[in-house]
C-alpha cells in the first residue's frame, strides 16, 4: 500500500504543469523515502528529475517500493479538477493498476475521487554522476524566465557565459545581436540578486525553446540555480519545501 497526503495540493498541480510539455508518460518510483521520477523528452535532449521527500508530506506510507507508470497528460487533466486550496491524497495498492487521487476542499465541503489507469512503460534510466560544476549561478527564477522569454524574440539559441564577476546572456539572430549582462550582487531585492560560484569561466550555447519550458517551474521556487561545466549538460534546479525539480539540457555544440 502506498498513500501520501499533501495538504497543499497546489504544489502538485504546479509540478505537473511544469513538466507536462516535456514528458508525456513517466514512471514514478515510490519508496518509503520519496516519490521520484526521471524522464527524458521525446527528442532525448532534455531530462526531468523530480524528488518529493516523504518526510515533507502530512502523511506518508509506502509498504513496498513500486513503479507507477503514469500518463502525465491524463494526470494533468485530473489535477485541473482539484481546487488550489484542496488537499490531495495519492493512493495505490501493491502491484497497482490504478492510482487513486482524492481532492478534499479546505472545509471538507467537497471530496473528489478519481482512479487514473496506470501504464506499463519501458523506461530508459540514465546514470547521472555527481559532479562539481565549473560555474553555479543562483538568481531570481522570474528574472531568468523573463530574460529567456525576451531573448527568444531574437533567435532560438542562448549563449551563456559566466565568469567570476558576471553572467552574460547573448543572442545572435537575423535581426541583429545583443546581450544582457548581470553582475554578481547581494541585493535585498530578490529579482536583482545574483550569486556566482565560479571556479572556471564557462561559455556554452543552449536551445531557448527548452529553457522556456523549464521556466514553467519558476512558479515553484523564487530562485533557480544553474550549474554549468564545459561540454556537459546544464542543470537548472528549482528547490521548494516538498523537494526539488531539476532539468538537464544538452548543450548545442559547434558543427
Amino acid at each position: 500500500m502506498f498513500e501520501a497526503l499533501l495538504g497543499n495540493g497546489l504544489i502538485l498541480k504546479k509540478i505537473i504543469e511544469s513538466i507536462k510539455e516535456l514528458v508525456t508518460e513517466v514512471n514514478f518510483e515510490v519508496t518509503s523515502e520519496a516519490i521520484s521520477l526521471q524522464a527524458m523528452d521525446a527528442s532525448h535532449v532534455a531530462l526531468v528529475v523530480l524528488v518529493l521527500r516523504a518526510s515533507e508530506f502530512e502523511e506518508y506510507r509506502c509498504d513496498r517500493p513500486q513503479t507507477l507508470g503514469v500518463s502525465i497528460t491524463n494526470l494533468a487533466k485530473l489535477l485541473k479538477i482539484a481546487g488550489n486550496d484542496d488537499s490531495i491524497i495519492l493512493r495505490a495498492e501493491d502491484e497497482a493498476h490504478v492510482l487513486t487521487l482524492v481532492f478534499t476542499g479546505k472545509n471538507n465541503e467537497k471530496m473528489c475521487e478519481f482512479n487514473l489507469n496506470l501504464l506499463t512503460l519501458d523506461s530508459e534510466h540514465l546514470g547521472i554522476p555527481e559532479q562539481e560544476y565549473s560555474a553555479e549561478v543562483t538568481m531570481s527564477s522570474s528574472e531568468f524566465s523573463r530574460i529567456c522569454r525576451e531573448l527568444t524574440q531574437v533567435t532560438d539559441t542562448l549563449n551563456l557565459s559566466v565568469d567570476k564577476e558576471s553572467v552574460k546572456f547573448a543572442v545572435s539572430g537575423d535581426i541583429g545581436t545583443g546581450s544582457i549582462t548581470m553582475k554578481a550582487n547581494n541585493s535585498d531585492k530578490s529579482e536583482e540578486k545574483l550569486i556566482l560560484n565560479v571556479s572556471d569561466t564557462v561559455s556554452m550555447a543552449f536551445a531557448l525553446r527548452y529553457l522556456n519550458l523549464f521556466n514553467k517551474a519558476s512558479s515553484l521556487s523564487d530562485e533557480v540555480v544553474l550549474s554549468l561545466s564545459p561540454e556537459v549538460p546544464v542543470v537548472l534546479k528549482f528547490a521548494f519545501d516538498l523537494g526539488e525539480l531539476k532539468y538537464f539540457l544538452a548543450p548545442k555544440i559547434a558543427e
Partner: peptide, 14 residues
C-alpha cells in the same frame, strides 16, 4: 552554426 547534442551522449543508461 551549432547543432543540438543529445543527453545519452553524456550519460549512460543504467
Amino acid at each position: 552554426a551549432t547543432i543540438q547534442n543529445i543527453l545519452p551522449s553524456y550519460f549512460s543508461s543504467t
